[in-house]
C-alpha cells in the first residue's frame, strides 16, 4: 500500500518555476544582499565606527527609539493608513509559555489572560473559547512577540464566520518584530479600503478592508490597549462587523 501511495503521487512535484521562486526568496535573496557595492560596505563601516565612538547620550537615543511601536496598513492603491502610533510595549511575565517553532498551544481566553496578567477583548456570544497561542522569541530567548489565533471566534457555518488574530509586542522586543509591526501584519494582497470609523465602544480607530480576490472576505483591524486585533470575516456585512466590535469588552 505504501508503494501504491508513493507511485500515485510520483507525478505531483514542485515545478522548476516554484523552486526558483522559493530559492529567490531565501538563499538567493541573501546572496544578492551580500553583493552590495563597495561604497555601501565602506559607508556601513564608517557609520559603525562613528557609532562606536559616540557617548552614552547617543546610546540613550537608540533605546528611546524602541520605546514605542507603530503599525500601518498599505492598500493596493498605495494608500497607507496608520492603525496605531506610539504603541506601548506590553509587559509579558517571564513565566509566560513559549510555544516552540510555529506550533500553537491551545488555550482558552481565561487561561491566556491568567498567564499574561492582563485581559484581552472578548465577546459574550463568541462561538468557541478555543484559541491558539504562539510566541516569537528574541535572540536572547525571551518572548518578543505573542500571536493568538482565534479560528472560531464567530462561527455560524462554513460560509459565514469570523476568525480573530491578536498580536502584541513585549518590552525589549527585538527590532525585527518592531519593524514587522510597523510594516503591517496583514499579509493578504489586493487590499481595498472599505471604511474607517472611530469606535464609540473602544475609543479607537477601526479600519475595514476587503481583498480584491475574494467577494466574501471583510477584515477589520484596530489597536486596543496596545494590542493589535484583526477580525477576518467571511460573508459578514459591515454592519454585522461593526455590531460585534461595538460589543467587545475586556
Amino acid at each position: 500500500m505504501n508503494k501504491k501511495f508513493k507511485e500515485g503521487f510520483a507525478n505531483i512535484r514542485v515545478s522548476d518555476e516554484l523552486e526558483r521562486k522559493v530559492l529567490d526568496m531565501t538563499i538567493n535573496k541573501e546572496i544578492n544582499k551580500k553583493r552590495l557595492p563597495r561604497l555601501v560596505y565602506a559607508s556601513v563601516i564608517i557609520i559603525m565606527l562613528g557609532m562606536f565612538s559616540l557617548t552614552l547620550v547617543y546610546a540613550k537615543e537608540i533605546k528611546e527609539f524602541f520605546q514605542n511601536w507603530s503599525s500601518n496598513i498599505v492598500f493596493k492603491n498605495g494608500e497607507k493608513q496608520t492603525i496605531v502610533e506610539n504603541g506601548i510595549f506590553k509587559k509579558i511575565p517571564a513565566t509566560a509559555k513559549k510555544s516552540g517553532n510555529d506550533s500553537g498551544i491551545e488555550m482558552t481566553e481565561n487561561e491566556i489572560e491568567e498567564m499574561l496578567g492582563f485581559k484581552i477583548l472578548g465577546y459574550d456570544k463568541a462561538t468557541s473559547k478555543k484559541m491558539f497561542y504562539t510566541t516569537g522569541l528574541n535572540n536572547d530567548k525571551t518572548i518578543g512577540r505573542i500571536d493568538i489565533w482565534y479560528p472560531e471566534f464567530i462561527y455560524d457555518n462554513d460560509e459565514k464566520n469570523i476568525s480573530m488574530y491578536i498580536s502584541m509586542l513585549n518590552e525589549n522586543a527585538d527590532s525585527g518584530y518592531v519593524y514587522a509591526f510597523q510594516e503591517g501584519l496583514d499579509a493578504s494582497g489586493g487590499k481595498d479600503l472599505e471604511k474607517t470609523y472611530n469606535s464609540a465602544n473602544l475609543s479607537v480607530k477601526v479600519i475595514m478592508f476587503s481583498n480584491d480576490w475574494s467577494k466574501e472576505r471583510l477584515t477589520a483591524t484596530f489597536c486596543y490597549d496596545n494590542v493589535l486585533y484583526e477580525l477576518i470575516g467571511h460573508n459578514i456585512t459591515e454592519e454585522e462587523m461593526i455590531n460585534i466590535i461595538e460589543n467587545l469588552h475586556l
Binding site: N101, D102, S103, G104, W149, P151, D158, E159, K160, N161, S163, S214, K215, E216, R217, H234, N235
Partner: peptide, 15 residues
C-alpha cells in the same frame, strides 16, 4: 506540522 497548520489556516477561509 507547519504545512498542516498552513493548510488548516487556508481551509478556514470559506472562499
Amino acid at each position: 506540522k507547519v504545512t498542516i497548520n498552513e493548510c488548516k489556516t487556508l481551509f478556514l477561509s470559506a472562499w
